[in-house]
Design a protein around this nucleic acid. Structure first.
Length: 579
DNA sequence: GCCGTTTTCGGCCCGACTGTTTTCAGTCG
């Protein structure tokens, strides 16, 4: 098993993003800069190891990577840096890269500040602004100086802005949409943006409305419960902030072009950019107002998204796929996946009860699952070594199995599997004996400790668990917590290969903080021949509903019903087990 | 620098907003 220490996609992507900015600061033509940025994005989102691709001479298969960038990837991996970047850094202070991240200061204005005032870092920018010297540079007035000071005061250029988890964003967004519908049932209103695409997290909420009386609508919007403050308002819409501090952008549009605006504000920016580029080649120009046809000079507006996409010669693309990851080509060819739906899910195979750190009993969980229409669940409390008395000790596992049997006897219409979420110990062994594991109907193996191991150690540890004959699935395989904790270092390609080879399922954990595997990895796993299982990991009956966030990730991963193990009947599922 | 059912060269998405401007460049999403 070859688990080499390889450069990660994110590290390679960062290097090209930086190189793009350096070229930009050096005054390169904008399209060259854009080319580096596109390549970085492509590298970052590749579901497989780009270092591995490069080693095989296949880097140019990535869109946006040609001969030159492929050579630079090779140099970066061999020497740890790109020669062109080293040369540029001799001319351009590295601190200038941070200056371009200050809102309002793009590359052109940053160059200006460097040339005119000798500013080469955020600190020098701060000093110049505080001393009132910024206005000495041409094109910089009092307002510009004020904005720079304000931006630096909130730490711009240093930390990325906070993002809101999809679960919170959807809860608020759906309440706002319902509130607007209640105000006037005749309007068309939809959530757009990253919330509609079911991304991991959202920077803000976009709401698109077609209404006959915009003023009345805006008045109703301003007094909806979640809204803390309306910060600006006009005939085209309003901007507001919720009590959680989540910005809301409300757009009002005539009904005739509702489809165009919804398409535009659903994004993603990348998807729209690619969509428009493709349209231009056919003499069509797409904007939020309509589709302009060079042939007759007329702009066609559409009431629905279906009509917008139809005008561009393709079927409507599900919002979850609109990330410019191949969906346009698939749509054109009629190859869009038939995405798995929440209603396809027949059971939930990872949840906790009061036997470990859950809040409800086996029966309570089972009844709640039955109400959701499931045919089966697995009770998977933590195993012996989970700690703090929050696990099922070895001597108690048989009692737990008996409890499941009793609950099964009391309940019709749903089958309860006796399972466990077994700890994978630092050496890759499991913390129940094999003969005990044999008595279980379902085994999820997860890592909960020793995340500081090296990539090699973690990968070998996980592969040992995957190869264990009793393990049905690997729980939350990368350990990430969205916006809070990076995934632990793992050779995901090696993990996928092992899972495919052994017939082990990989989980998409549906907890909205996790969504682990993420969409890129889950897509790579399915392509690698691995079946996924989408689990709520509920610690209380009301959390079974988290399944929707796992489905969101599954759909963003292009998964179809057959890719997801728990769309099967229990009998079919049992055939997927290793023994 | 990348890319191709009009192209291996000549293009490269679209519009709003802002501030500093006498008509627009730069930035943002």
């Amino acid at each position: 098993m070859g688990v080499a220490q390889r450069m990660k996609n994110a590290e390679i992507a960062d290097a090209f993003d930086e190189l793009g900015i350096l070229y930009e600061l050096d005054g390169a033509v904008v399209h060259r800069v854009v080319a580096y940025r596109n390549a970085a994005k492509s590298i970052r989102e590749a579901g497989v190891s780009v270092a591995e691709m490069a080693a095989q001479g296949r880097a140019q298969e990535l869109s946006g990577v040609g001969k030159t960038i492929a050579e630079k990837i090779d140099a970066l991996i061999a020497d740890g840096e790109i020669p062109a970047a080293r040369k540029l850094k001799q001319r351009i202070p590295e601190g200038l890269v941070q200056v371009t991240r200050v809102p309002g200061l793009g590359p052109k204005r940053t160059r200006q500040l460097h040339a005119e005032l000798g500013i080469g870092s955020l600190e020098e920018l701060r000093q110049a602004a505080e001393q009132g010297r910024l206005t000495d540079a041409p094109g910089f007035g009092a307002k510009a100086q004020e904005k720079v000071l304000a931006a630096l005061a909130v730490g711009a250029g240093e930390a990325p802005t906070a993002r809101t988890l999809l679960s919170t964003a959807l809860e608020v967004g759906e309440e706002l949409v319902a509130g607007l519908r209640a105000h006037d049932p005749s309007i068309e209103v939809e959530l757009a943006g990253s919330a509609r695409r079911h991304a991991d997290s959202c920077k803000d909420l976009d709401i698109v409305v077609a209404a006959s009386d915009p003023e009345a609508l805006l008045a109703a919007f301003a007094v909806l419960d979640p809204i803390d403050e309306v910060t600006s308002t006009g005939s085209a819409g309003a901007k507001a902030v919720t009590h959680q501090g989540l910005p809301v952008d409300l757009r009002i549009v005539p009904r005739e072009s509702f489809g165009n605006l919804l398409q535009h504000f659903t994004g993603s920016g990348r998807h729209n950019e690619a969509l428009r580029k493709e349209a231009v080649r056919r003499g069509l120009h797409v904007s939020e107002y309509g589709v302009l046809d060079d042939a007759n000079g007329e702009t066609a507006a559409f009431r629905t998204e279906e009509e917008v996409y139809a005008a561009l010669g393709m079927p409507c693309i599900p919002p979850e796929l609109r990330e410019n990851r191949g969906e346009l080509e698939a749509a054109r060819k009629g190859d869009l996946p038939k995405l798995v739906r929440l209603g396809d899910i027949r059971g939930d195979l990872h949840m906790h009860t009061t036997a470990s750190d859950g809040r409800n009993t086996i029966l309570e969980m089972a009844r709640a699952a039955k109400e959701r229409g499931y045919g089966y669940i697995a009770i998977t409390d933590h195993s012996a070594s989970h700690g703090f008395g929050n696990g099922v000790a070895t001597e108690d596992l048989k009692i737990q199995i008996e409890k499941v049997a009793k609950a099964n006897a009391k309940l019709d219409g749903i089958e309860i599997l006796a399972g466990s979420e077994v700890n994978v110990l630092p050496d890759g062994s499991l913390d129940y004996a094999d003969d005990l594991l044999d008595e279980l109907d379902w085994v999820v193996a997860s890592l909960h400790t020793s995340f500081s191991q090296t990539e090699r150690e973690l990968t070998e540890r996980m592969i040992r668990a995957i190869e264990h004959p009793a393990v049905d699935a690997i729980g939350h395989p990368t350990g990430r917590l969205i916006a809070r904790r990076e995934p632990y270092p793992l050779d995901i390609d090696a993990v996928i290969e092992a899972a495919a080879r052994t017939g082990t399922l990989l989980e998409i954990n549906a907890n909205p903080n996790r969504r682990d595997l993420d969409d890129s990895y889950a897509r790579a796993a399915a392509r690698g021949g691995v079946k996924l299982v989408v689990d709520s990991d509920a610690h209380g009956a009301e959390r079974l509903g988290n399944m929707r966030f796992g489905l969101a990730t599954a759909r963003r991963a292009w998964l179809e019903k057959d890719d997801v193990a728990n769309t099967r009947t229990l009998a079919q599922l049992r055939q997927l087990r290793k023994r």
